[in-house]
Amino acid sequence: MTTPTSKKSGKGRVHGVVSELSALMSVKEGHKEPMKATIQVFEDRLRDPRTQSSLERIGLRSLRFVLFDDDRRLMWLTSFESEWDPYVDDALAIIGLPVWADWLQHTNEFTIEDVDAVTNADIKAFLQSGQIQAAGFFDFFGDVTQPQVTKALRVNKAFQQVLDDPAAQEALAQPALKPLLDEAAD
Rank of each mutant, 00 (worst) to 15 (best):
T78V: 00
P147T: 02
R45E: 13
K32G: 06
D48C: 07
I39W: 09
S19Q: 13
A184M: 04
P4R: 10
S53P: 03
D114M: 05
F141A: 03
V155K: 00
A167K: 09
Q161P: 00
G136C: 08
D69T: 00
G130P: 06
I94F: 11
D85Y: 11
S22W: 08
I123R: 00
K28I: 12
D139G: 01
Q169V: 08
K178A: 07
A184K: 01
D48I: 10
V99Q: 11
F65L: 10
G16E: 10
A176W: 07
M35P: 12
Q161G: 01
A101H: 02
Q161C: 00
K151N: 03
Y87V: 02
V27P: 14
D164E: 14
N120V: 07
T119Y: 04
H15Q: 12
A158Y: 12
S26E: 15
V155L: 03
L127E: 02
L177W: 12
D69W: 03
K178Q: 15
E43S: 09
S54A: 10
Y87S: 03
L60A: 01
L180F: 11
F68S: 05
F159T: 00
F42I: 08
S9V: 01
Q128K: 12
Q131C: 14
T107N: 05
L46S: 01
L172E: 12
D122R: 03
E83W: 05
D69C: 04
R50K: 15
R45K: 15
N156V: 00
W76F: 13
K157C: 02
Q131R: 08
V88T: 09
E81V: 00
M1V: 15
S9G: 08
M75D: 05
V14R: 12
I39V: 14
V144L: 05
Q105N: 10
S54W: 06
K7V: 15
S22C: 13
S129Y: 09
D114S: 08
D70S: 08
A152G: 00
G130M: 15
I95D: 07
E20G: 08
